[in-house]
Structure formats: structure tokens, C-alpha cells
């Protein structure tokens, strides 16, 4: 099991009282699975994703990644966890505007390795893999939305993560481009055995997952897993 979540709770203090964005949630995510999380706005799906990525600390509960209880990690250990194990794909692409496509990927590679030439080579290979080898020196504003998301995916893969977390990756894309990006994610999941957890509003996108979770008021509402069935088939 890649991730084991036990009684995870995240409570936000607001002026009108405390609110549990994630409420006593338990979940196991096997390695190589493609988990999609759906739910209404405010159901806690993004909060869960943030905690999975070590971007947000839970208020209580336990989250174990490959046997390590990451909720006990210090801040800089969490940064190491993110750079070593997690890739992120965001709805807004989260690219740095004054860096070219290749530089946006190199900056992620630089976290672990400061060899500039080696990083450039690795970044170019990733851009080629996502089909943007002719856009390496383009700035984000010179790329289409789909191309920007491909750069973001390439950056997420830069450090060979075991876990790829995607927050509404097709939220800013038209249906055609959405399918294209989802296809890339599916390929990553199947060819690289990378575990993917994707938050989405789109029922169509949710169908790409082999484990489908629906959240409501911070709790698991439905949990349908095809992982075992797929493995049997």
C-alpha cells in the first residue's frame, strides 16, 4: 500500500466556529492506482489532496506514505518529501511566467541536482515526451492552455515521483484538450506505474480513475475501486 490514511481530520477555525474540511476520513491508496476524487465545492477534496502532498498538515489522524508517517514530518522534511516523491499538476498550470518551458522544468530538477547541463537534457527529454519539443524556448504566455498543462505535467514528472497529485487539471481546458491531458495522465499511470490522485468536478474525467471516491462534508460518500478487478482481469 502506498498511502494509508487513518481517521484524518482537518479543522479550520473560522469566525463563526470550527469547520471540519476533512472529517475523520480513512482511506488506503494502493501503489499504481489512479484515484479520482469528486464532490461538491467545499466537500474537502482539495484539502485532502493538499494533505496527501504534504502541503497541509492534518489537525488529527495519521497519514502513512510507504511506511513513513508523514504527518509527523517537520516542515523541511515535508519539502524533501514533495521533491522526492510527489508531482503536482494544478488547474492554473502553476508555471513561472518569466521562465521558458524548458526552464520551468529545469527549476524543478534543480531542487535535487544543480547540474545545469544535465537538467537541461532531462527537461528537453520530458518536453519531447509530452510532445512539446518544438516549444522549449516558449514562455507560458506564448503557449496554449493545453500546451501549458503539458509543460506542468512534464515538470511534475521531473523528479520521477511515485505519486502524482492533480487538482482539477482539466478545469481550464475545453473538452477536446481535457481528453488529451487525461490521456497523458492515464499513460503516465499505466506506463510508469505512477500513482495518481486527481480531484475533479468532471464526471467524464472521473471515469479515467480505477478508484473513484466521492466526498461529501469532508467524509467519504462513495468509494468504488476497480483496482482489484483490473488486476484480476
Amino acid at each position: 500500500m502506498l498511502i494509508q490514511i487513518k481517521n484524518l481530520t482537518k479543522t479550520y477555525q473560522r469566525h463563526d466556529g470550527a469547520i471540519n474540511a476533512v472529517d475523520n476520513l480513512s482511506l488506503d491508496i494502493p501503489k499504481g492506482s489512479f484515484v479520482t476524487i469528486t464532490g461538491a465545492s467545499g466537500s474537502g477534496k482539495t484539502t485532502l489532496l493538499l494533505m496527501l502532498g504534504g502541503l497541509l498538515r492534518p489537525t488529527s489522524g495519521k497519514m502513512v506514505y510507504n511506511g513513513n508517517e508523514i504527518n509527523l514530518h517537520k516542515e523541511e522534511e515535508l519539502a524533501n518529501f514533495r521533491s522526492n516523491h510527489v508531482g503536482f499538476v494544478m488547474q492554473s498550470f502553476a508555471l513561472i511566467p518569466y521562465l521558458t518551458a524548458v526552464e520551468n522544468i529545469m527549476i524543478a530538477l534543480n531542487v535535487k541536482n544543480s547540474d545545469k547541463a544535465k537538467n537541461r537534457k532531462g527537461a528537453l527529454e520530458l518536453l519531447e515526451w509530452v510532445g512539446l519539443d518544438d516549444r522549449t524556448t516558449h514562455y507560458p504566455k506564448e503557449l496554449s492552455a493545453g500546451q501549458q498543462q503539458r509543460v506542468a505535467i512534464a515538470r511534475a514528472l521531473a523528479n520521477n515521483p511515485d505519486l502524482l497529485l492533480a487538482d482539477e487539471p482539466t478545469g481550464n481546458l475545453d473538452p477536446g484538450l481535457s481528453e488529451e491531458i487525461l490521456g497523458v495522465l492515464k499513460e503516465i499511470n499505466q506506463n510508469h506505474n505512477t500513482t495518481i490522485v486527481m480531484v475533479t468536478h468532471s464526471p467524464m474525467a472521473a471515469e479515467y480513475g480505477n478508484t473513484k471516491i466521492q466526498m461529501k462534508n469532508g467524509k467519504l460518500h462513495t468509494h468504488v475501486s476497480n483496482v482489484i478487478a483490473e488486476q484480476i482481469n
Binding site: 502532498g53 502541503l55 516542515e75 523541511e76 519539502a79 524533501n80 514533495r82 521533491s83 522526492n84 503536482f88 502553476a94 508555471l95 513561472i96 511566467p97 527549476i107 524543478a108 531542487v111 535535487k112 515538470r155 523528479n159
Partner: peptide
């Protein structure tokens, strides 16, 4: 802020 968030997200320390 967003850019700093990106750098922190991909693993850069403070």
C-alpha cells in the same frame, strides 16, 4: 506569492 508557492510546492526549502 503564487510563484513562491510554486517553488515551495515543488520542494524548495524556505
Amino acid at each position: 506569492r503564487k510563484e513562491i508557492g510554486i517553488l515551495r510546492m515543488i520542494g524548495y526549502h524556505k
